[in-house]
Amino acid sequence: MNTTGSPKTRPARWWTVPTAAALLALSVLAAGWFGVSWALAAHDSSVELAATRDRVLRAGRQAVINYNSIDHNRAQRDMDRALRGTTGPLRDVLENSREQRVGQITEKKAVMRAKVLDAALTELNVRAGKARMIAGYKITRTLDGGKPSTSRWRVRVELTRTDQKWKMSRMTPTAL
């Protein structure tokens, strides 16, 4: 009577529960599989190494820029910033020559801006906390508001990890 319209659709509806259950089981399996895959990827040593490589390279580039960018108007502050990117022997050298450098820059009213043209890590030893980087950069120097002059350099840098940060411990610049 009142149910006469539905019988044809009934067999289809009967399958909805097992079908939905099968789909649920499938999705649970998929979620488990990809969840494990994600967890593995998150702890994958290669993925981690790649991230570290990029982080070390960024730190190295910034250290080179900071080391070579000094404005006579804020020489002490820029020196502090340059020092923060260094460690070990290079930090000692910079600290020892600090007053002399600041004096020269202030006297010449020099503004030095460094730009890294290209940089690459040549070695990365995460366990030892050591890395080697090569970089090409240019310094634009302005003396007493005069005409800016540009010089190009290439530098070999040794980076050392200290306090979870990578800092320049050695650098050997060569003028090009």
Binding site: L23, L24, S27, A30, A31, F34, G35, S37
Partner: peptide
């Protein structure tokens, strides 16, 4: 819902 989660994991 779980399939969406699986997709996100993937």
């Amino acid at each position: 819902g779980i399939a969406g989660l699986a997709y996100w994991f993937h």
